[in-house]
């Protein structure tokens, strides 16, 4: 049975125009990501990783090319439809968590369901609690965000991305603000979610985190320069052990 395509782009390009200056942030991106994949996107700063993720996440539009998400041709959607796609099909995770301050974990996780227009989530609180359980925060449900560590906050953000059961989880440097150990924990959490069938696309600068994924896409100057499966995937035990080794002289 061929796996379902979640993402398919054809000659996707994004050009930013600032007056006279044109920045070609993405040029002719062609890629297919299937259901159940765990893709790491790497590349130097300014190579277009975030721009690509924004377009995939329907926060931004391509200047040219086609983009199909979970069978929907995104190019033809209007603003409200894009918002609804984000609400129904995508879970976002950001480097700086972007949680509501002084608000409980539970309320933060419920947030996407407020904007649900399909009416399928009648039991928001229950779903939010379940999502928090999945990320290992069952005992922090009523803690406010400012009472949580960085790693825990990122878990809340992941729970928020999971709560509406999206087709795709997008993470832009989710471990960028965390120390190595917490980063490994988060990466491991992604692996667990992926094992349960979630499709994940994650931007990262850290090779050891990228190594948790199944596939790696490398960008340079807005173009894909390599796209390959990861052969010896990392895991939590291995990565933690590596951490304890003294750095090689």
């Amino acid at each position: 049975m061929p796996a379902k395509k979640v993402i398919e782009t054809k000659n996707l390009s994004r050009v930013f125009k600032n007056g006279e200056i044109e920045v070609h942030a993405l040029t002719d991106i062609n890629m297919i990501i299937e259901q159940g994949e765990f893709v790491a996107i790497m590349g130097a700063s300014g190579s277009g990783k975030s721009t690509l993720l924004h377009i995939i996440g329907c926060l931004d539009r391509a200047t040219s090319g086609e983009y199909e998400l979970d069978g929907v041709l995104v190019n033809s959607l209007n603003k409200n439809q894009l918002a609804d796609v984000r609400n129904q099909k995508i879970g976002f995770i950001f480097q700086s968590y972007n949680l509501l301050s002084r608000t409980t974990a539970l309320e933060n996780v419920e947030l996407p369901l407020i904007y649900d227009r399909t009416g399928q989530f009648t039991n928001a609180e229950e779903l939010a609690k379940k999502a928090l359980e999945q990320v290992g925060l069952a005992n922090r449900i009523y803690h406010k965000t400012n009472e949580l560590s960085g790693g825990q906050q990122q878990r809340v953000a992941i729970a928020r991305a999971l709560v509406n059961n999206p087709a795709l989880i997008l993470a832009d440097e989710p471990t960028g603000n965390l120390d190595s150990k917490a980063s490994i924990e988060i990466a491991d959490l992604f692996v667990q979610l992926n094992n349960k069938g979630k499709t994940i696309v994650m931007i990262t600068h850290e090779p050891e985190i990228a190594q948790f994924a199944k596939r790696m896409i490398y960008l340079r100057d807005g173009q894909i320069i390599s796209d390959q499966l990861i052969e010896n995937r990392s895991n939590k035990e291995f990565a933690l052990k590596e951490l304890e080794k003294p750095s090689t002289p």
Partner: peptide
């Protein structure tokens, strides 16, 4: 501003 950005990212419409 960031809160608004977050809300938009998780699917709030402009009208929301």
């Amino acid at each position: 501003t960031r809160e608004i950005g977050t809300r938009l990212a998780i699917g709030a419409r402009e009208s929301d």
